[in-house]
Write a protein that binds this DNA or RNA. Structure first.
Lengths: 351, 351
DNA sequence: GGCGCTCTTGCAATCGATTGCATAGAATAG
DNA sequence: CTATTCTATGCAATCGATTGCAAGAGCGCC
């Protein structure tokens, strides 16, 4: 029993028709080519025999694998699972399956993973890894692979992408802090080679000007990567250069966590002595100490839209490239508060 | 340029040999069948032409897809990403690729996902979802699919599995609390239909007896699922039935978070008024408020071992079933402390 | 010099589906 | 009643690799 797979041939024999007829009867697109009575009979026999078409065999002939590849830096980064769920949901509707590959922010691994996906004949790829000018994209173009970016943009509009309005998000954070009374607001920026890093930074700069913060060049320190350690380093540099800062807008939640660490190291209590905001609203951000005020991005929706965009592009390779920009939302929690009045409270020392 | 794929035929033509020779020259197993000089020439031409064998086409003939399926409840549950990374790493070494499916703890979806994986002709599956007696396993057996369980067991030994020594882990937590001076220790248990829920519970019961806790039936409340809400409910029930409890051993970190919530609701400060331990040491457990004392399981190692076990079973379907049990480790953080002396401090009210 | 042996290589079938083309029979037109 | 167009189905090639079998080349031995 284990040995015998049921093939289209078996169904054909059993239904008394030719295999090609079975194929047509079972394929929604070709269904019209075969008479209703035969189609019904075939469907019934297929059902009875428990026939499942082999997508591998079909793919060989049709050149489509009903599979798409996803490149992300690291699935353990909590930003991604919700996006993946969104992608998966939209893909499943269309009968597609996703293959996920982690790159660990390593260009070589990314290259490698892409080649492996291409070898598996994926019908398209979703990239959450690329920097603003990335050779990966050229490679995809050369391979003739439809591509959609999530949470990234090349700026050029040559590639479809789904992203967050990073400028607006950063502005949300700045305005919130300004409203609380902060004047000296600093920014721990993400890597500027990534569109999110650049976008949030420029959003910060513009918003700071708009709310009329202190004059002079904006207090900004760029983190080397989107990690806690990098955030702590950048925060240290920022605070060293601008000791009077009362609030920090971090370019993502992990960087904010790094800011927490650095603040604590300096004996600064958050939010009493310094307010800190994040970006992304990653899972469990509400459980941090203190709960993180952050800019929530529509992770799942990004995934869904990205998958839809990609499917459309697979369907019609010359469909226009589109950029979908989703609006973020501020989530106020415990890491932001009014700046402490200069003399209302004595600075608190860490133990 | 985009149109033409390079096939084995192209390489054969270019190298002046037959396609079958190319196949043999490039396949490590058959490599010995062709002369060294020809093999070298073929390898060189393949290299030069940029030939990548089509695993789909090969799979059609060989009946192996070099693909395995993974069923997990939810990728957004931070327990799983490290396991997946482990699986992926071990798989990649062997040239295999993973396809991940989420089931949301829904038996129907699980069933469905399994069928889809089977249709894609995966060579085996890794299940992180099954309960102690699960129809999914019978289905795999019927399909002739090699299976390995991660972090789950059927108890029967009929299926290979990689798991944590849950009894030992629970004992670690209980002993830690006993050493701190706790006598009245309760347990928020996981669902008993899951092997982890049952194992941790029995570990708790045995350890409690061993450390000579209070007599009488052990204070235990079972959570309906491994979620924060369920944990809060169970904690409420536990504290209502046993008000004198000074410490709770939760069967996983999410349940522990639920305990945090319920404790706060009752005006109990953790760890001052009540100590709480988790299980798993999920990412960011050190960032919770308070940082969670928990039992760390070797997530990545579980993934690696599971993948190895599965590959071995694919290689040799009649290889003996094995259960690998990994030892957990206690991570002490801020959610546990000595029980407060009956009158040393006044209870603290939440605001 | 003929026989048998090993070592390489080619031939052709195969895996399971899809699809352009051909054809038989039915339906319709004239 | 014949000619023509449809419709429904079958035939066979195809996708890209793998592999059992056959055959040719080279070689040693008696």
């Amino acid at each position: 029993m284990r040995k015998k797979r049921i093939t289209i041939e078996d169904v054909a024999l059993e239904a008394g028709v030719h295999a090609s007829t079975v194929s047509r009867a079972l394929n929604p697109g070709k269904r019209a080519l075969v008479s209703d009575v035969v189609a019904a009979r075939v469907a019934a026999t297929a059902q009875r025999l428990g026939y499942t078409p082999d997508p591998v065999a079909a793919g060989l002939r049709t050149r489509r694998s009903a599979t798409i590849g996803i490149l992300i830096p690291d699935i353990a980064n909590p930003l991604f699972p919700p996006i993946l769920r969104g992608i998966e949901a939209a893909l499943a509707e269309a009968g597609y399956t996703a293959i996920i590959a982690n790159t660990d922010n390593d260009a070589l691994r990314a290259r490698d993973a892409l080649e492996r996906l291409a070898a598996r004949r994926v019908d398209g790829v979703i990239l959450a890894t690329v920097s603003r000018r990335d050779p990966l994209l050229d490679r995809c173009r050369k391979l003739g692979l439809p591509v959609v970016l999530v949470n990234r943009s090349t700026g050029g509009g040559a590639t479809s992408a789904v992203l967050t309005d990073d400028e607006a998000g950063a502005a949300l954070a700045v305005r919130h802090l300004a409203l609380l009374g902060h004047r000296a607001i600093g920014h721990v920026a993400g890597p500027q080679r990534l569109s999110t890093g650049a976008g949030r930074r420029s959003g910060f700069v513009a918003a700071r000007r708009a709310v009329g913060g202190e004059s002079g060049p904006p207090p900004i320190a760029e983190a080397a990567s989107y990690g806690i350690e990098a955030g702590a380093h950048a925060a240290a540099a920022l605070l060293a250069a601008h000791p009077r800062i009362t609030a920090i807008v971090a370019a993502n939640d992990l960087l904010a966590l790094g800011c927490y660490d650095e603040a604590r190291r300096r004996g600064l209590a958050c939010p009493r002595d310094i307010s800190i905001t994040g970006f992304n609203d990653m899972p469990f951000a509400d459980r941090f100490d203190p709960p993180l005020t952050t800019v929530r991005i529509a992770q799942r929706a990004m995934g869904v839209e990205a998958a839809r965009l990609l499917l459309a592009e697979i369907e019609n390779p010359r469909s226009p490239k589109r950029e979908i920009k989703l609006q973020p939302e501020l989530v106020v929690r415990g890491s932001t508060a009014q700046p402490r009045g200069p003399s209302l409270t004595v600075p608190r020392r860490s133990r």
